[in-house]
Amino acid sequence: MIQSRGAVLAILFLVMGALGIPLLWMNKAFSNAERWFWAVVVTLYTALLIYIAWRICMWSYHQIIG
């Protein structure tokens, strides 16, 4: 399963985010160009999710303190 392209992409986007990039690089089913592409996309996706969580926390904080 670790060599399945679909499984690796699902793990990257649904479970681990940027922490799963070593799993991507261990997979022989991806070319080097694809590895770089997916590593950048997953990193940006993870950064976006962190930013959204931060914005929600800040909105919640401002709602509490009034």
Rank of each mutant, 00 (worst) to 15 (best):
I64V: 12
R5K: 14
L49A: 08
I52F: 08
I11E: 11
Y51P: 03
G6P: 02
M58H: 10
I56N: 04
M26I: 11
L48H: 13
L19S: 09
L44K: 06
V42M: 03
I50M: 12
K28W: 07
V41G: 01
A18M: 10
T43D: 04
M26N: 12
F37T: 07
A18V: 10
C57Y: 14
L14R: 13
Y51K: 09
A29T: 10
A39C: 08
I65M: 07
I2L: 15
M1S: 14
A53D: 06
C57E: 15
A29Q: 09
L14G: 12
L19A: 13
V42D: 00
N32L: 15
F37N: 06
A33N: 13
Y51V: 13
P22N: 03
A10Y: 14
F37H: 07
Q63Y: 07
M1N: 13
T43Q: 05
N27W: 02
Q3E: 14
W36T: 11
W25H: 05
V40H: 05
L19G: 11
A10K: 15
S60W: 14
L44A: 10
I65V: 11
L44F: 11
R5W: 04
A7G: 08
L12V: 02
V42R: 00
V42F: 02
A7S: 14
A47M: 08
I56E: 08
L24Y: 01
F30W: 03
G66F: 03
Q63S: 07
H62P: 00
E34D: 04
I11H: 15
I52N: 07
C57G: 15
L23V: 08
V42L: 03
I21H: 00
W59E: 08
I21F: 02
I21G: 00
I50K: 05
R55V: 08
A33K: 14
L9G: 03
L24W: 01
V41N: 04
I52K: 11
Q3S: 10
G17A: 05
M16H: 10
R5I: 09
S60A: 15
W38P: 00
A39T: 06
K28E: 10
V15L: 15
Q63N: 12
